[in-house]
Design a binder for these strands. Sequence first.
DNA 1: CGGTATCCCTGGCGATACTG
DNA 2: CAGTATCGCCAGGGATACCG
Lengths: 132, 132
Amino acid sequence: MGRVTEQVAAGEPGDAFDVFSRDCPSRLTLEHVTGRWGILTLSALAEDTLRFNALRRRVDGVSEKMLSQTLQALERDGLVIREAQPVTPPHVEYRLSPLGRETADRLLDLIRLVEGRMPEVLAARGRYDRAR
Amino acid sequence: MGRVTEQVAAGEPGDAFDVFSRDCPSRLTLEHVTGRWGILTLSALAEDTLRFNALRRRVDGVSEKMLSQTLQALERDGLVIREAQPVTPPHVEYRLSPLGRETADRLLDLIRLVEGRMPEVLAARGRYDRAR
DNA sequence: CGGTATCCCTGGCGATACTG
DNA sequence: CAGTATCGCCAGGGATACCG
């Protein structure tokens, strides 16, 4: 189930890029998307097209360097589109590509679930910690 | 939008745990879930209840230490249930809690999307790299 | 404004060895 | 089998300074 090594049956195209195998490129992309700053960046851009510093304010705690790196990785993977207008002062906007939007939708689903169930999580933590 | 600091309006319970703010506990849980090994562990357990070493084999590349740490964090957050039978040799099974299953479902959605769109991603990378 | 370059250091992580 | 303990590396990431 899901462990195709050589060729892919037509109709199951996903199996060619199985994230469960160590050096599949899909694992790297998944890490860009679900990384500490990637997930928050994509989710922020799902709400709005944003400029660099606006994004930096929205993603609380991210450094300039990490935001820059994150955006570059996401742009390279084709999830984020960078639009620079050659004016002074510079004006650069970041927005989601169609694929970026589909990805962000999934991430938002996940975030909403986690946020909404935090009371349950906190209760579980209490029980776990008390048990030792 | 989404930035409640003190109290929550009834009917918008998610906003109490906004992942966008730096020290919200939900951000930590989200990192456990979407972390490098967390996402793969949860996804593996979505297919099957698994024992430690079976899990280790399924999540290609994970070390014993990291798998152990990952499982502890997920158990503490109430996403994974650890069931130990006191026999020799030890027999321990890991499975998803109801919340763990809901979470894993979202992760699988995301994984399937990324896996299925890798050709698109790879093409974007090619374009990006050629442009410099 | 929108970044890149540099420095520096912590802690994430792998490797190895050991235990019940 | 199912882990814990210990060590040590190096890359992820923060802080700061600087550039177009």
